[in-house]
Design a protein around this nucleic acid. Sequence first.
DNA 1: ACTATCTTGCACACTGCTGTGCAAGATAGT
DNA 2: ACTATCTTGCACAGCAGTGTGCAAGATAGT
Lengths: 208, 208
Amino acid sequence: MTTTRSPRRDATENRDALLAAARIELNLDAEASLETIAARAGLSRRSVYGHFATRDELLRELVTIGATRIAGAMAGVDHPRPTVRLALIASRLWREVADIKVMAVFAVRGPLKAHTAAALQPLRDRVAAAIAAGVATGELRSDIPADRLTRLVENAALSALAEASRERMDDREAHRLVMLLVLGTVGLGAADSAAIIDGHPELEWTAR
Amino acid sequence: MTTTRSPRRDATENRDALLAAARIELNLDAEASLETIAARAGLSRRSVYGHFATRDELLRELVTIGATRIAGAMAGVDHPRPTVRLALIASRLWREVADIKVMAVFAVRGPLKAHTAAALQPLRDRVAAAIAAGVATGELRSDIPADRLTRLVENAALSALAEASRERMDDREAHRLVMLLVLGTVGLGAADSAAIIDGHPELEWTAR
DNA sequence: ACTATCTTGCACACTGCTGTGCAAGATAGT
DNA sequence: ACTATCTTGCACAGCAGTGTGCAAGATAGT
């Protein structure tokens, strides 16, 4: 017979539990072992292999899910001024990533970076577009090639995340920091950045 | 008898060769094995242990040497304007680190970071001092606490290094990029940063 | 109550590395 | 030429993990 039943309910629950556990555990230690992750999910290491062929497969799925969430959060981000758009992207990003900081940094910089890059492509495209537009209008610096600037902006955001996890920063403050660093990187002075952030209510932090 | 001869000449040569090899090899792959390093030095893995008790000891010594070199390169860096001073520090830093980029990033971010931090303390103090001075005169942003800003500046510099090793960048361009990112981080706009760099001949790149 | 589906524990193979003991051989320095 | 010092190769122990086979037991779904 070829007809396979649909998976048992507890099985899918456990699968989700594993992903959730991985999310938490990898955020504490980016290199957490399967043992650790399974334990947090209330399962044995052995049974992880009932859901994921390899450790790598688990991680990739986790990254994919995260990237999709982020991409989703960017929907509807739009504003005529490229600088504001960038700040808005930074703002939304922070919201999605605040409780995943460590893992996020690892996903982008660690061995999964290739996969992460692919999954985050849409986000990067958005940033690149905003930058290109800003350079065209003269709002943004033109002394650094746009594609390079895109990567540097990304790094700036990561830097803010790293700082936020290093010290346990206030959400509101961290949210502002991400925007400030991004704007600083694309060429705005501190005062201009502050003016933009404070002049646009949609860039304000609102508790979740 | 307790009198020990001084080490044989070839031994000290080999020791140096190991350090040099490590420098090169770790710059290609920050996690290069002792096997690889020894091979590059023309030695066997086994004999590494004749010079260093553990892999870690080798790495630490390497970091210490590098940090000392960098500290040395900062001697005489001084300028009344904190912004220029920061740019100058960035400039000198690049010079010292240009051919060690990968390893430098790893040393600061990887498992050796504690040791690296200690070894680089003088450099950090310099940066912190310049920032404090700049905040006091109003030349630099005051919307981010000085100690945080110090770390962010460091990250900005690392970001430039990372970008420079990612693409194989022109020395002159990379040198400028490090300064631009540092200045951008402390709150200057792109135009102001450029003005500072171009207005001070000591910030120009000179081929080595 | 029956059974396909899941979970578990244990044993094991494997990987890629570090670190050590030892005996044999090479070599610098005198 | 003598000898302390270095280097080497090999074998071995250890570590921390991943991935697998298998048999026994638990459980969801019907």
